[in-house]
Design a protein around this nucleic acid. Structure first.
Lengths: 345, 345
DNA sequence: AAACATCATGGAATCGTTTCCACGGGAGAG
DNA sequence: CTCTCCCGTGGAAACGATTCCATGATGTTT
């Protein structure tokens, strides 16, 4: 079993087609990759090809042209709705640009990521789009071997020269803080801060900045560290809402954190938004199904994928020049945040 | 720009390594693809390779071996949580089996699907896993050209010889009907039936069977047709719940239908489960976040991807023999279904 | 009418591997 | 001591495409 066969049991090659059509292989090649061929010859060749069920081999072509014609996409995973959106964007874009996409999941693990990049390099992909997990040294090495790398949604601080397409997370968080502050909230918690040792992420910094801009001092106790994982998020949310009965609003830095906040609030019998307002970054499907529907900042996952792909395949020239592409976020106001009347207790 | 270079500006090839190590290219090949080489030689070759940053080219190898070493995965899309799970399963499985995955989204459109398959054939993938959109003729042609096809989650009735990995949807629906019947429900609606002209799907048939088995006659008015798309689902749910105030339970055939049911119920101020019980097929993340949390049938998306991939890459021998692989579903009981006390109005 | 530009065409080299085959040398058996 | 046998090794031929270059046949210009 396997591919379509000619008499000797192998799939038809350009040679078979040439013989069948009574022309040279160069002519067949021209027919299929757009050289100049007379109409009558082209017709004969196409007829022979159809007869033999011939499909040009991307392997042969790739070897000669020294490129694979596809790109590699490295994501932490594909089940997260945001990553799935990004993937969808890349897929759509790659298709219109005529390339295929090899998808790999790193699970957020630098070691797996390094292995993945190695394999993509062996495949001789035309470029790599990555949501990098973390190891800068590995990426530095990868870039030395394959210069066509674009980061999506996340950058590595040590590699500013790599082109990137990002969501304007800072802007999103800022608009969220302004919205909450506008409703009268002052004791706003941030779910998803950096662990004690690490440096704070974009969203946390934006949170602090925005708060400061509104003249609200940042209480360190209200910035709770949490990795974006279900258990950690739940623990963080539970800890916060139990410890500080006086917070009037919680801003979750991601949809897993938001999910945790909603569940914990329900568990503690806190009414949303009467007792506590909740809002989050990432506008996922369930935000609308929640009761009450959750206010969220929508991040343009699909567009990020789209732009990253275009940057990689089309705008090679403009690549690497200047700052990362920043795509706007959108504040989607729903029912989970209310105007402040008084403290919770 | 591009790949790592040797002196003349090209990426290092097996020849360069051979020259640098003072051996023949055959020996280098053996080192990298597991032939027998003396320890000292192997070491010299590896040193030279490391020095030159050599990576064997998958294109050269693929051409010689006449296979790509990867598989193609054709899905309607990647943003649907179930499809994303399936994709994750394929990715994980392919990785442990040492192959890469080319992912393509067909958007459920047979024409796009046919084009995708053509491209995968040109890539000479080792096999294709597909959640087929519909056109049997195209798949029949594809299978003639590349026998390594496995269907996942869905089969085409005209192609029973193609191996497939499916969720036991019938069993899932049955257990859901039994659960609802056990709670005393008799007027149970089914959201997501076939349109008038088409033949009913597995889930609808299972629904009718299970109901019949419980001695409940099927009211045609309670089986509402709806494609699994947001607008259609919403219209169907709204139509049903407004038309028939007497239904006590609604079984949604998919998560989009379930979402619609929840939204419509909320809009009509129906209390769940006091006024109407809701349950659905597909246990997606928001089912747990809903208020009340939704009872659902979990379908093993990840496992389906896993098994499909193994069937394709590992169990080639056993492939195609016998009936499709059926993977069990699981009824996840939450709070959205209640015991029947009396009619809704 | 002669010289020349244009164009379709085929031959052959090339891309980077794998693998068959031949060859040489060291070790074990008779 | 010699005859095998085996193992490590290298040369060379594929694999299926693209593309440069030469060639012969057109058609055009003076």
């Amino acid at each position: 079993m396997g591919w379509a066969r000619v008499a000797d049991g192998r799939s038809a090659t350009i040679k078979d087609v040439a013989a069948a059509a009574g022309v040279g292989i160069a002519t067949v090649s021209r027919v299929f990759s757009g050289g100049s061929v007379s109409a009558s010859t082209r017709e004969r060749v196409l007829a022979a090809a159809a007869e033999l069920d011939y499909r040009p081999s991307a392997l042969g072509r790739g070897l000669k042209l020294r490129r694979n014609g596809g790109i590699g996409l490295v994501l932490p995973g594909v089940t997260d709705p945001f990553h799935a959106e990004l993937l969808a964007g890349v897929l759509a874009s790659a298709r219109t640009l005529g390339g295929h996409v090899i998808v790999e999941a790193s699970d957020g693990d630098p070691a797996q990521e390094a292995e993945i990049v190695d394999r993509l390099v062996e495949q001789r992909v035309d470029g790599i789009i990555a949501l990098p997990a973390g190891d800068e040294a590995d990426w530095r090495a990868a870039v030395r071997v394959c210069s066509s790398v674009v980061f999506a949604d996340r950058v590595l601080p040590g590699l500013p020269e790599i082109p990137a397409v990002l969501a304007d997370d800072a802007g999103g968080v800022r608009s969220l803080v302004e919205y909450l502050a506008g409703l009268g909230h002052r004791r706003i918690a941030f779910l998803g801060g950096a662990a004690p040792g690490e440096r704070p992420g974009v969203r946390e910094r934006a949170f602090r900045d925005a708060l400061a801009r509104h003249g609200v001092p940042v209480e360190e106790d209200l910035v709770v560290a949490a990795r974006p994982a279900r258990d950690a998020a739940y623990a963080a949310a539970a800890g916060l809402l139990q410890r500080r009965a006086d917070v009037t609003a919680a801003l979750a830095a991601g949809h897993l954190l938001g999910e945790a906040a909603v569940l914990v609030a329900r568990e503690l019998d806190l009414r949303v938004p009467a007792d506590v307002s909740i809002a989050m970054v990432d506008d996922v499907a369930w935000a609308e199904l929640c009761d009450p529907p959750l206010t969220a900042v929508a991040r343009p996952g699909r567009d990020i994928g789209h732009r990253a792909c275009e940057l990689l395949l089309r705008d090679r020239a403009r690549r690497g020049r200047g700052a990362p592409v920043l795509l706007p976020t959108e504040l989607v106001v729903r029912g989970s945040c209310g105007a402040l009347r008084g403290a919770r207790r």
